[in-house]
């Protein structure tokens, strides 16, 4: 069942043009020039219930504008948004009941008070039945290990503990959809893993739909199969992460550990890609030369102790798309 749908979504902002310097600042007291900026345009996608999607793009690409329209905070200039069957900006309050939001950089917990008190207030705001509230809290405590710091004022929590608290807070009212904006920013490896595990569990057990915006592509690799890439306000890719890697990540790296110290290592069909002592890295295009052929050539020429192939990580693929643009994608790639 489709739970989120956008059709030809567009948002235009008007902003003040500021002239530099002191005189500019004084002049701006009396007259202002405006310019129009298209934040997002032609955004079309739909999400099925229970999906996790990574909504990715560089800073200023239009990610948060889209999220604001999905959460009912902004009204689109044109186009349609439907979230769980309703138009968010027209039925803001109902939409609020359906969604949960976590901003990695902004907490919704009460700074001066223990976690427990924030949860109590949220229970009242979202009108969560008491038994359901208790049950959820117990469950979340198990996964996120909240019990250790449930009674500590939030301002004394570490960032990792606070984020666990924020996740529990966003999920207390069993939202159908959660929007996660940079949920793991600034966290250490252990806390990141705990948060990712929690997201995966909620999705698996409750079928919660998750929209994830992040710059940490490890989040994406761990959690989602589908990604939507947005750049300069439009969607440039919507599809499986694996396919993006398949079609776009055409290069592989063959890592060879040599048994003897050969001065120069040259193999036909591959370019040297760095050397560290006896470990040599060879980069090749898998459409031009099969890995099997390449390995045979290496074995024919050198004595080796180990060999392996590195897949390109999503990070480098996405970075390439941002810098080279969508047009650089192989023509074969269907959107």
């Amino acid at each position: 069942m489709t739970i989120i749908e956008t059709v030809d979504l567009k948002k235009v902002f008007r902003s003040v043009v500021r002239r530099p310097g002191l005189s500019g600042a004084f002049a701006a007291l009396f007259s202002r020039e405006f310019e129009e900026k298209v934040a997002v345009e032609n955004v079309n996608f739909s999400l099925q219930e229970g999906e996790i999607v990574g909504y990715l793009g560089p800073n200023g690409a239009g990610k948060s504008t889209t999220i604001k329209m999905l959460t009912g905070i902004l009204v689109p200039t044109s186009g349609v948004v439907r979230v769980a069957g309703i138009v968010p900006s027209e039925h803001r309050q109902q939409n609020g009941q359906n969604i949960g939001v976590v901003f990695g950089q902004r907490s919704q917990l009460y700074w001066d008070l223990p976690l427990r008190e924030s949860f109590e207030l949220l229970r009242a705001i979202y009108d969560v039945p008491r038994d359901r509230f208790a049950q959820n809290l117990r469950h979340f405590s198990d996964i996120l290990d909240l019990d250790r710091f449930m009674g500590t004022p939030v301002r004394q929590l570490s960032l990792g503990e606070r984020m666990r608290g924020d996740f529990a807070a966003a999920m207390l009212h069993d939202p159908k959809i959660v929007f996660l904006d940079e949920p793991t920013i600034g966290l250490d490896v252990v806390a990141k893993e705990a948060i990712r595990e929690f997201i995966a569990t909620m999705n698996r057990e409750r079928g919660t739909t998750v929209v994830l915006t992040t710059h940490d592509l490890a989040d994406v690799e761990r959690l989602t199969r589908r990604i939507i890439l947005i750049d300069e306000g439009t969607v440039i890719y919507d599809g499986l992460l694996a396919r993006l890697r398949e079609e776009y990540g055409t290069h592989r790296i063959l890592v060879v550990t040599l048994a003897e110290n050969y001065p120069d290592v040259e193999v036909e069909g591959a370019q040297p890609n760095g050397r560290d002592g006896n470990i040599v890295r060879l980069r090749f295009n898998r459409h031009e030369v099969a890995a099997e052929t390449l390995i045979r050539r290496v074995l024919d020429a050198y004595r080796i102790t180990d060999i392996s192939i590195e897949e390109p990580d999503i990070d480098s693929i996405v970075r390439r798309i941002y810098t080279e643009g969508y047009n650089a994608l192989p023509a074969a790639l269907p959107i």
Partner: peptide, 9 residues
């Protein structure tokens, strides 16, 4: 500081 204050017309 002057420029900052002037921003808030």
């Amino acid at each position: 500081a002057i420029a900052r204050e002037a921003t808030y017309r």
